[in-house]
Design a protein around this nucleic acid. Structure first.
Length: 270
DNA sequence: GTGATAACCTGCTCGC
DNA sequence: TGCGAGCAGGTTATCA
């Protein structure tokens, strides 16, 4: 599922492909989650940024196309003239003025599109309340510690909420908590734990970006390639395997409706 | 305001 | 072989 590294990889791949291009025609699936695609017709793509897992495509008319890839969303470009068999999982298409088409494909339809005035995210709650970017200087152990103190929910659940830090999903949350040796279900985070968790989050996300993201099933880059980070996971999805650090068996539990893999020896409940 | 949970959605896996 | 149940999970809505 696309988390920060996957979305950043897509952003980097898309940037040289679509900037400066004008949308000559737009089509969308009938669901309200995708019909905002139609509002982009006639606009020009000026820039493409990212906040957490959200792609922010700036338009030349003072608006932004906000794209969330959900679990199975992907963006790719192909020649408009391609006579390919209809793809039932295409949710939006934008024909561009260079005779290419930008395609938003999303099998499970967990993705969504919005068009908003630039920088006005009030109508997108998660984006409006999103925490600092983990790879920028305003994300610090102190900011992480302070954000975690605002809630008594489980540490991992808080990470997934996007409020303490942007862009962390199930894969990188499990990896970061494993690296920091923190029990995922504990409801408080001490300052020393924040000092460990902060670099763990930064490191796993940076490694994910460096490896082009994690492909478990659906994720593809703009060019259709798979990521490589799935070969570098220590913990996520490894239940039953030995912990790479202590060789104890990694276990899987469901908390707050999310499967979590952790090491019961390295990540002890305190 | 906060926390917990259901719903959305579809492909895949597993058991019968 | 075919069928049905359960699972995966990011975000939003709803309820307590």
């Amino acid at each position: 599922m696309p988390e920060l590294p996957e979305v950043e990889t897509i952003r980097r791949g898309l940037e040289p492909e679509i900037i400066g291009r004008t949308v000559t025609e737009a089509w969308s699936h009938g669901s309200a989650k995708f019909t905002p695609a139609l509002d982009v017709a006639g606009a020009q793509f000026e820039r493409i940024g990212r906040r957490g897992k959200y792609l922010l495509i700036g338009l030349d008319d003072g608006r932004e196309l906000v794209v969330h890839l959900g679990m199975t969303g992907a963006l790719h470009r192909r020649p408009t003239s391609d006579n390919l068999a209809p793809d039932p999982y295409t949710r939006a298409r934008w024909n561009l003025d260079d005779n290419t088409t930008l395609v938003f494909r999303d099998v499970r339809r967990f993705g969504r599109l919005r068009v908003v005035p630039t920088g006005d995210y009030e109508s997108i709650t998660t984006l409006a309340q999103i925490g600092p970017e983990p790879l920028e200087v305003d994300f610090t152990p102190a900011s992480l510690h302070a954000a975690m103190k605002k809630s008594s929910r489980r540490v991992k659940t808080q990470l997934l909420s996007q409020r303490p830090v942007a862009g962390v999903g199930n894969i990188y949350a499990d990896e970061a908590l494993w690296r920091a040796r923190i029990y995922p279900a504990q409801r408080t985070l001490s300052r020393p734990e924040a000092e460990r968790l902060h670099p763990a989050i930064v490191d796993v996300l940076q490694a994910g970006v460096d490896n082009g993201g994690t492909t478990l099933r659906d994720y593809r880059t703009v060019t259709g390639d798979t990521g490589d980070h799935q070969h570098h996971l220590d913990c996520y999805g490894q239940a039953g395997e030995p912990c790479p650090r202590c060789t104890a068996e990694l276990v899987s539990r469901v908390w707050d409706a999310r499967t979590t893999t952790f090491c019961p020896t390295c990540q002890r409940r305190r």
